[in-house]
Write a protein that binds this DNA or RNA. Sequence first.
DNA 1: ACATTATGCTACATATTCTGTAGCATAAGA
DNA 2: TCTTATGCTACAGAATATGTAGCATAATGT
Lengths: 115, 115
Amino acid sequence: MSIPFPGVAVRGSKTGKPVMALLDLLGRTWSLGILWNLNSQALTFRELQSCCEQISPSLLNTRLKELRALKLIRHQGEGYCLTELGIELFNIIEPMGKWSVSWAEVVNQGDNGGA
Amino acid sequence: MSIPFPGVAVRGSKTGKPVMALLDLLGRTWSLGILWNLNSQALTFRELQSCCEQISPSLLNTRLKELRALKLIRHQGEGYCLTELGIELFNIIEPMGKWSVSWAEVVNQGDNGGA
DNA sequence: ACATTATGCTACATATTCTGTAGCATAAGA
DNA sequence: TCTTATGCTACAGAATATGTAGCATAATGT
């Protein structure tokens, strides 16, 4: 699949609206997980592999290429880390951490969803 | 794939941490797009199909089942709409709309990514 | 009553994407 | 030189998504 550059047609939208490129990117397996794990710490390729259980090296590399092309992460001496843009995006999704806890309470209240 | 209930092991995490269930859910094709399109308006099944170009009815139905089980959307007379939890989650991701515009500028600055 | 239209949804073959494992090339340390 | 680590490629098999057809139900019209 091609990299969802903002400004071009992506899965779900032919308009080129930037937010659609972003939703396409974040909707790909592991994109969000990689951003989440790179918060506040640089990780090597192999450390990322262990953080994201089950991700295959080929797919990890594909995602890393996409995220690098879209300037959300970069590769330095210590490993992969968020760029300034990546930090901004992380700050947007960061509240999900807290929110998901109250969400879990409601979801597991009505029917016991396995927890 | 099973529904990522918070509290149980999901793709990427065996800990049951709610945020990991959320990242798994949102990382599935079209989840974010459906939530985004349901903002501020109820849509019927077929309207959602046209909003999300290319989504197949079988996959749309799968995603709708997941989102309903996780109490983010519900089905009423007028069609599908966000629940209170769904609105809360939308409010978290809503800033992506504005942010993605400045992101697009930076990305298309360095190299002209097709725009 | 009967056709027409719309809605929510299922079925299923094909196409695309992801996983899992093996392994290579390079660099640093012992 | 031998070991260890890193970033990454290759590729077969498994899982997931697309695209098209079509069904059952309900509302609307005549």
